[in-house]
């Protein structure tokens, strides 16, 4: 296994200068600003993003805690898809359709590390992904410790937190807590070790935290409030970032100057990888035969 933070050309703190995007952003608005810029400049002609579910209206709006992938082809569609839901949105599901009935030639995609693994596997082993490998134009990764199935979120909020789902304004996971903010401004914190069992089991064998296979990966870990930590990883990522910087899209700070910095990201990455390697080892001892390890083929 390589370095926990993966290969990268550059890492820094950044936040967008686009006020409209920043206003609704979870952190520095990096993902939305990058995609919006890429869309405007023709780097991509659409992007697969997680958006609030349209299948079940909730509180007169789309359900923000249940996300599903959409192919966004305008800035408005991107703006409607902001904030991470911490639940499962099968984004990779749409990468092929984006090149079919949507007619895209340059597809952008956002995802958590496992989804980026799916995207890269689709490129290197395009078993059922005809026409997809060469049309992936920009891959943006979001750091991820784990996600929750929708039903787990309901249980955490309603049982552990004692709040109706309809009252939730914001959910945040970080600093050891599952934090729920209600629309009346009340904040409830549930320690993550209490919610561990409710995480998606498939997350417990995941060996990537910092979306190491993305072109650019980002997240709040390590950065001051309102900013994001950004890794520029590939040639494509580097080109897109440079163009966006020239266009004045982001303000940045070097990562050395501000605490907690890179060490904090690395700490989380190591924590996740170590814990999940242990899970993989433990799986060998379930029953007398053990369970299949997807990373070791025989």
């Amino acid at each position: 296994m390589a370095a926990p933070l993966g290969q990268y050309k550059m890492v820094l703190f950044a936040r967008t200068t686009d006020k409209e995007i920043l206003r609704g952003a979870q952190n520095g608005g990096i993902v939305t600003a990058l995609l919006s810029y890429a869309l405007d400049t023709g780097i991509i002609d659409g992007a697969v993003v997680a958006a609030p579910s349209r299948s079940k209206p909730w509180r007169g709006k789309f359900d923000p805690w249940r996300s599903e992938p959409i192919v966004a082809m305008t800035r408005d569609q991107l703006l409607s898809a902001r904030k991470t839901g911490y639940n499962i949105s099968p984004n990779v599901m749409m990468i092929k359709e984006a090149t079919r009935s949507y007619g895209l030639d340059r597809v952008g995609i956002v995802g958590v590390p496992c989804q980026i693994q799916g995207v890269r596997k689709a490129q290197l082993y395009p078993i059922g992904m005809r026409g997809v490998p060469d049309k992936i134009a920009l891959v943006i990764g979001i750091y991820c410790m784990e996600v929750f199935p929708y039903q787990s979120i309901v249980q955490i909020v309603e049982d552990h937190g004692g709040v109706k789902m309809e009252s939730v304004e914001k959910i945040e996971i970080g600093k050891g807590n599952f934090t729920v903010v209600t629309e009346r401004g009340r904040t409830i914190q549930i320690p993550l070790n209490e919610t561990r069992d409710l995480e998606q089991p498939g997350c417990h064998v995941c060996l990537d935290y910092a979306a190491t296979l993305a072109d650019i990966s980002t997240g709040s870990a390590g950065s001051p409030a309102g900013w994001s930590t950004v890794f520029i990883r590939t040639k494509i990522g580097d080109e897109v970032w440079k163009r966006a910087m020239q266009a004045g899209l982001f303000e940045t700070k070097p990562i050395g100057q501000v605490e907690p910095g890179l060490g904090a990201v690395e700490k989380l990455a190591v924590e996740k990888i170590t814990r999940n390697k242990k899970t993989l080892e433990d799986r060998d001892f379930i029953g007398t035969k053990g369970l299949r390890n997807p990373y070791i083929t025989t």
Partner: peptide, 11 residues
């Protein structure tokens, strides 16, 4: 699915 206007243009 029907196709998008973008796809139609491409075709």
């Amino acid at each position: 699915y029907n196709i998008t206007s973008r796809a139609k243009q491409k075709l």
